[in-house]
Structure formats: C-alpha cells, structure tokens
Nucleic acid binder design. Structure first.
Lengths: 331, 331
DNA sequence: ACTCCTTAGGAAAGCGCTTTCCACTATAAT
DNA sequence: ATTATAGTGGAAAGCGCTTTCCTAAGGAGT
C-alpha cells in the first residue's frame, strides 16, 4: 500500500507538505503542489480513510437503519424508493452510505454498532419503535422517516389527510358504504390513516359498522387478501374500501375477482402509497400517492443540516396526493 | 468519546490487557476479564473501528458497486432482491455493506474510492462494462453479478436456457409465429437471451421474420410498450412473444390491451425475471424466473471464499425456471 | 536451594494520517 | 542597516487501537 510517506519521498517534500497539498492548504507553493501531484499520479496513491477518520473524527459515512415488516429488506416496494432518493441527495455532499449487518431497528446493539463505525449521521427508516434506544445522548444526529411516534426531526407523509382525500373521493363518487382495510395499528402510519379515515367518515356523517374495519396486518399482499375475505363475509357488503397500503389493495382486488365480482363495478378500491406497480395492475389502482422522492430528500436535507450544527428540531410533514386511476367508479 | 485508555484507568489494568480482553486473547486472568468488562459496561465503551482497521488492515466492509439502466437505483425490481439476498448472507459473517456515492459502475473513480475506504471485498452488480477498470491488480477480491462479458468470478442466470424454456413452452402450446422483444444488446443478459431465443427457434425449425425481433431498450415499461407497438404493426402478427424482461412484458401487455386485443386470447406473452409484481398483473404473467435469492447467495459465498484466500476463479450459472401463469394459452 | 517453565501483565512501537507550532528565507517597510 | 511581514516548509505530537516482545512472579521438579 502506498502511503503519504512514499509520496513524500518521491516528491522530495515532507509528509506535512504532502498532506497540505492533498487537503488544499494555503501555504504551499505551486511548485510543491505540482511535484506532489505528480508523485500521487505516478504511484496511484489513494489516501486511507481510516487514518484520516481517526484523526479528523469525521467518517463521511451515513448509517442507514432500515427495518420493515414485510421481510423483503432493501427490496421493499415503498421504502426502497425513499432510500434511493435519500441516497441521491446525500451523495451530492460526498457521503457514503453504510448498511449495517444484523440491523433490527434502532436497538442498543445497532446503536453501538453505529458508534463503533463512527458514522457522521444516521437515518432511521422504521415504522415501529419497540426497543428503541434512548437517543438523547447520541453522538451523531439522527433523522427518522415514518417514525413510530411524534418525535423531533422526522419526516413522514400527511397520512391523516391521505385518508381524508380517499374518503372524500369515494363520497364524491356517491359511495356511502365505505370500509377500511387497516394496517397493523402499532405501525405509526397505519394508525394515522385509521384516525384520518374515521374522522373523514364522521365529517360526512357516515357510520362505520364495526365489521367494516379489518386489519390487513403488515401491509402485505396476503394480509390484504385475508382482510378482504372478511369484508366480503358481510351481509351488507361495502361498495368501496379504503386500503391502507397498495400491496394490500392488490391482494384485496384479487380476492374480489376470485369471488366473481369486479373492480370497480361491484366494489371500488383505493390504495395508499402509489408504489411502482400500482399503475400496472388491472384495473390500474386509484391510490393516495406518497411523495417518496420528497420524503427522501427532506430527510437528507434535515440530516445534512443537523450535521452542520443545526440544533432546531422539527417534523416535516410531506403532502400526499390523490391519483385517480381505474379502481374506483361512481355509484 | 471513551477510549481503551479510560477502560484501562477504571479497571486498573494496562491498555494492553484491555485490548487482550476485548479480543479474546489467552493470557488474561478471569479476574482481569471481569474487571475490564465491568469498566466497559460502566462507561458504555465501544471500540473505534477506524483505529482498529488502521492497524489490522481489515475493515469488515464490503463495497457494493451497483449501476443499472432504469435509473431507479436501489429500487430496481430485480437487482434489489439480489442485493438483499447477498446482504443477508454476508451479514452472517459480520460484514457491513458500503454503498458508494457517485458510483457509476466500476470505473477508475469508483475503484479509487473503494481503495480509499479499504473495503475487504466488492460485489459488482452491473449489466454493462464500458469503462470498467482493470481489476487484475485489485487489492481486494471482486465478484460480479450479471457481468458484461464472460469473466472469472461471476454469477448469473442461465439466460440462454431461459429463452429455450420460453420458446419450448410456446411451441408446446402450438405457437409457431413467435416474436422476441429484446433488451438492449450491449447488456450481457439481453444478448444471451437473444442467442438462446434464436437457437431454440432454430431447433424447432421455426423461422424468425426480421420484423419479429425488436428491441425494448433498457428493460423499461416504456421500452416494452414501444417495442410492442412495432410488433403490432406487422401484417402477419405473431401469436406469441417472448419478452426479455418482466417490466417490458407488462408494458407490452398494456399496449395489446389498448389495441383492443386480449392477452392471452389474441397474443400470448412470456416474460423474464419473475419480479415481485409479475404474479399480480392481469392476467398474471407467465415468465422465466431468475432465482434472485440464489444468485445473491452464490455471490456472497464466492466473495467470502475469496476473502478467505481462495484463488480459484470460476463462474456460477444459476438455473432458471418456467413459471406458468395466465399470459399464455394454447392455440 | 536452585533452575526451568508457565502464566499474567505491561512497555513501546507503529498503523497512515492531520494539525499545531516553529524555523527559515526573501522581501518590504522604516 | 534594521526590523517587520509574508510566504514556505518541516518536526513532532497524537488520533485509538493491536501486537510484539519482555519482565516478573509463582510453582514444579530436582
């Protein structure tokens, strides 16, 4: 491995001067710069980040804590897009991303590992917060995406408003018998959507039979199927259902079709997330779009700010949007 | 930050002994171990990985070089699953994953960055190899997934056989007029599939009109659409088309439907990849499944072996499988 | 009592860098 | 000529660890 010493020797300068050249210090002559850079090229020298981190105490590393319930990890249809957006923005500032092994959320072990790695900042993409560590005395700033509870320095969609948009749309179309396939209630976003749904229904003076609220669990296709089966068991079937996630919505549509009914003719379906597939289902899924790009970017901006010393804590709520496609029809 | 010195002081031992305890060296008494561990707990000490890496020359970091043509990065429907599988397997051995910023494939800049970070190994997930650096003198082992050319230490699907399975299936169903929507030919996998397709058609003595081979570009939905539009412009339309990727197949199906035709009644479609959505399209997509889990695992095993000093280079070809769903019918 | 092991623990060097502080030279100002 | 000033460059310390010796002490064997 070539080191700064090799460069010093070849260029005829001291390691101090080499280091100064490499770090754009002022007190170096053009001549020295030239000679040093020549040596660098000749030997194919690359500085050692560990050594640099050790003395500067800056790693240029951002830790990604990512845990989700579907069990698909990085391949998650929604979070992967958020992380990609986040990545695109922090890399403009030359940060690399570190994905920890054995990462099950921000627990003590994960937190220690992060400390061990000396990351400059952390983004937590996590929908639940069971064993979450106390972060008050964290040596690095942390930003949360889709956080479990209302907590400073987090960004998430306006989930309640999303539910309202969904219900309003359905009501506009003339629906009155509207059911809700919920996500697991311990998940922050699911809970918010439930609250938004109830409130919106209330604002339209629409009653919600108890059997119209069923859980689809952790937002999976299978969960959506099971929930829809329960919904279909109602004597008085809903004419529309607001589903808390697109994957569940796709599962629900499948069940409806298997029951010999049609979407949207017999039952209208509206999803949540607008994952990549949503526009390619048949019929294309009407849904509440979460702005994944913006969520990732906001999280990046927030973290970058904090790493620059900004201490103000705030929550960023990202707008959602109704995307009308083919899975809802007027009564 | 608490260091090994703080532990030494609190426990009453030297930093040497503390280090020995932390690294399970033999010559330490039970008493010393206990005292040291107590101090570690008390101070909440975490070793500094930069310092450790600097002296041991081992970073426990695996670099991920990932570049794809769709522009979706980590959210790529196929590669994300491969990477997730790879990740799951290397983390059993306590490696963390490093995603580099400004990573556009294994070019010189990326390579230097990898050297700078001192990674222990690298996995390259990349379908093209334009500016690829000379890796013969790499300081770390590298494994390729879906490599551009036949190169040692790589893993990829049996693409040719996949095409054969597709064609055979269609022929079994009675089809003779079979078209192919190709991927961009400079992409290794696309090229292999084209070759496999031609050979399979030949083995059945089936001619391929020139207009039956159209490129869908970089495997995108839009590319599939455009290709299918061209195919539909044929006087003598194909009764079936083998599509080189699922996203393109979905785009193609959409076009067929928009043209007032039906899949599979009028035209049978068979995809490639078996991405997560494939089973949820309407009709569900018959496709050639790539074993993403196995590809990721094989790459992990190969890299782990190399990091352990194994010098034998070999290519691992992962079997593919025909998944019959609803997008093909018998003539 | 003496030597010879074995075991436990520590001193010190060094991994590759940055950064502070000082020294030296050349030039400008007095 | 003398002093101040700017412009270059280097010595040395130190970031937090591991690892190679080396020493000291205790116990076994004769």
């Amino acid at each position: 491995m070539t080191t700064i010493y090799d460069i010093a020797e070849l260029s005829g300068y001291s390691i101090t001067t080499v280091s100064k050249v490499l770090n754009d210090y002022p007190n170096v002559s053009q001549k020295a710069k030239k000679k040093v850079m020549q040596a660098v090229d000749e030997l194919g020298y690359t500085p050692n980040s560990s050594a640099r981190t050790l003395v500067t105490n800056k790693s240029w590393l951002i830790g990604v804590v990512f845990s989700e319930n579907l069990g698909v990890g990085i391949a998650h249809p929604f979070f992967s897009e958020v992380i990609e957006s986040f990545k695109k923005h922090v890399e403009l500032y030359n940060f690399d991303l570190l994905f920890l092994s054995r990462n099950r959320g921000l627990e003590q072990e994960t937190f220690n590992h992060l400390k061990h790695r000396g990351v400059d900042g952390v983004v937590v993409v996590q929908a639940f917060g069971d064993n979450m560590v106390n972060i008050d005395e964290s040596p690095f700033p942390i930003v949360f995406i889709d956080l479990p509870v209302d907590r400073p320095s987090s960004v998430h969609s306006d989930n309640r408003h999303g539910s309202k948009l969904a219900v309003d749309h359905l009501v506009d179309l003339g629906h009155k018998k509207i059911a809700h396939i919920m996500g697991e209630q311990t998940v922050f976003a699911a809970d918010e959507r439930i609250k938004g749904f109830k409130k919106a229904m209330e604002s339209h003076n629409l009653a919600i039979p108890e059997t119209y609220m069923v859980s689809g669990g952790y937002f999976s296709y299978e969960g959506g199927r099971e929930a829809m089966i329960k919904l279909l068991a109602n004597q008085d079937k809903p004419t529309a259902v607001v589903v808390s996630g697109d994957m569940m919505a796709i599962g629900a549509m499948k069940v409806i079709e298997e029951a010999g009914l049609k979407v949207p003719d017999d039952i209208s379906i509206i999803g949540f997330d607008d994952i990549a597939i949503a526009k390619h289902t048949n019929p294309p899924l009407t849904t509440i779009k979460q702005d994944k790009e913006l969520i990732g970017r906001q999280a990046a901006i927030m973290l970058l700010d904090k790493m620059n010393g900004e201490t103000k804590q705030y929550t960023k709520v990202v707008p959602v949007q109704l995307i009308k496609r083919g899975s809802c029809r007027a009564l």
